[in-house]
């Protein structure tokens, strides 16, 4: 994955956050995930990618962060179901928006959402996986992009 490729996801993440009222979150500098251990917080939304590139994009965040986002979006029901749903929707939106750069052969799955540390989420060794950190208040959710090169 080259710099331009990563920038697409950084831009999409910034765009997503800019559409949420009163959330002045910042997107940090992406970094390479060195180990094969995945990064995960309380809630994770995962999108499988197929087509010209294969892999996954996932968004993982502390529960309290997701609860704040729901509140800012005007959704009154901050149930566990909605916290999970929002994580999937964020991963879906960031991945789907990438098709404006990568075209319709960048296929995305419906979201899979996981509560707690995912047991079967392994980042393949031969793929360079990047973490894109987000900072808002004291929270630091992360978008992880793990995709094969073309």
């Amino acid at each position: 994955m080259n710099e331009e490729f990563i920038n697409t996801f950084v831009s999409n993440m910034m765009k997503y956050l800019s559409h949420i009222p009163n959330v002045d979150a910042e997107v940090g500098t992406p970094y390479l995930i060195e180990s094969d251990a995945s990064i995960s917080y309380d809630i994770t939304g995962i999108i499988g990618i197929s087509g010209k590139r294969k892999g996954c994009v996932y968004f993982t965040a502390p529960r309290i962060f997701m609860s704040h986002l729901l509140m800012m979006l005007g959704v009154k029901d901050r149930s566990n179901e909605n916290l999970l749903d929002l994580a999937g929707e964020i991963a879906n939106t960031i991945s789907g928006n990438a098709r404006s750069d990568f075209g319709e052969k960048f296929h995305i799955s419906v979201p899979v959402v996981v509560e707690g540390e995912p047991q079967n989420l392994y980042l393949p060794e031969r793929v360079r996986s990047f973490a894109i950190p987000i900072t808002w208040r004291t929270y630091t959710p992360v978008l992880v992009v793990s995709l094969e090169d073309e």
């Binding site: 729901l70 005007g74 959704v75 179901e81 749903d85 999937g88």
Partner: peptide, 13 residues
């Protein structure tokens, strides 16, 4: 929409 959050949000609007 398959997202409950999106359905709720539009409903609220």
């Amino acid at each position: 929409d398959d997202s409950n959050v999106i359905r709720s949000r539009i409903d609220n609007i």
